[in-house]
Simulated assay, not measured.
Amino acid sequence: MTRRYSKEEILAKAQKIAEHMSESEQVSFYKQAEAKISANRKVQVLVDQIKKYQKESVNLQHFGKTEAYHRNEALIDHLQAELDAIPVVQEFKQSLEDVNDFLQLITKLVSSRVADAKESPEDE
C-alpha cells in the first residue's frame, strides 16, 4: 500500500530540506560573497550610481529625450563594466550561478520524483 502524506507533513519535510540546503557548500559560499559585496564601499558606490542613472534613463525615455537617454545608457554600461571587473563582484556572480544551478538540480529531482510517482500504478 502506498503511503500518502498530508500537506503539513510535506511542508515539514520541505522545511528540513531547506535547512539542509542553507547549510550546503554552495549557499555558504554565496552568503560569504554577499557579505563581501555588502562590505565593499566601491561596489556600493557603483551600484548606487547605476541605480541613479537607471532612474534618470526612465525619465529621459518617458519625456522622449532620445539623445540624452542614449548617453545615459552608455554611462550605465560603463559603470556596469567597471562593477563587473571587480573580483568580489565576479566571485558573487559565480556563487549566485552555483546556487542557481544547485536549486535547479533540486527542482529537477523533485519534479522527476513527482512524475515517476504519477506514472507508477498505485497499490490498492
Results as ranks from 00 to 15, higher is better:
residue 1 M to H: 11
residue 1 M to C: 07
residue 4 R to F: 15
residue 4 R to E: 09
residue 4 R to C: 08
residue 6 S to V: 01
residue 7 K to F: 10
residue 11 L to M: 12
residue 11 L to Q: 15
residue 12 A to D: 12
residue 12 A to K: 14
residue 12 A to W: 04
residue 15 Q to H: 12
residue 16 K to V: 06
residue 18 A to Q: 10
residue 20 H to Q: 15
residue 23 E to D: 06
residue 26 Q to S: 04
residue 33 A to V: 03
residue 33 A to N: 04
residue 33 A to P: 02
residue 34 E to P: 01
residue 38 S to A: 15
residue 39 A to D: 02
residue 39 A to Y: 04
residue 40 N to V: 08
residue 40 N to E: 10
residue 43 V to A: 13
residue 45 V to Y: 06
residue 49 Q to A: 05
residue 54 Q to A: 05
residue 55 K to Q: 14
residue 56 E to L: 11
residue 57 S to W: 07
residue 58 V to R: 15
residue 60 L to R: 05
residue 60 L to Q: 07
residue 61 Q to A: 13
residue 61 Q to S: 13
residue 62 H to V: 13
residue 64 G to K: 09
residue 66 T to G: 11
residue 67 E to L: 09
residue 67 E to D: 07
residue 68 A to I: 03
residue 68 A to S: 06
residue 68 A to Y: 08
residue 69 Y to N: 09
residue 71 R to V: 03
residue 74 A to S: 02
residue 78 H to K: 14
residue 80 Q to A: 01
residue 80 Q to M: 00
residue 81 A to M: 00
residue 83 L to E: 00
residue 83 L to N: 00
residue 84 D to R: 01
residue 86 I to N: 00
residue 88 V to I: 15
residue 88 V to Q: 06
residue 90 Q to H: 04
residue 93 K to V: 02
residue 94 Q to R: 12
residue 96 L to E: 14
residue 97 E to N: 09
residue 97 E to M: 07
residue 98 D to H: 03
residue 101 D to A: 13
residue 101 D to Q: 08
residue 104 Q to W: 04
residue 104 Q to N: 11
residue 105 L to G: 12
residue 105 L to S: 13
residue 108 K to W: 07
residue 109 L to T: 06
residue 109 L to C: 08
residue 110 V to S: 12
residue 111 S to N: 11
residue 111 S to D: 13
residue 112 S to W: 09
residue 113 R to E: 14
residue 116 D to V: 05
residue 117 A to T: 02
residue 117 A to E: 05
residue 118 K to Q: 10
residue 119 E to V: 07
residue 119 E to I: 09
residue 119 E to C: 04
residue 120 S to I: 08
residue 120 S to K: 15
residue 121 P to F: 11
residue 121 P to K: 10
residue 122 E to P: 02
residue 122 E to Q: 11
residue 122 E to N: 07
residue 123 D to E: 14
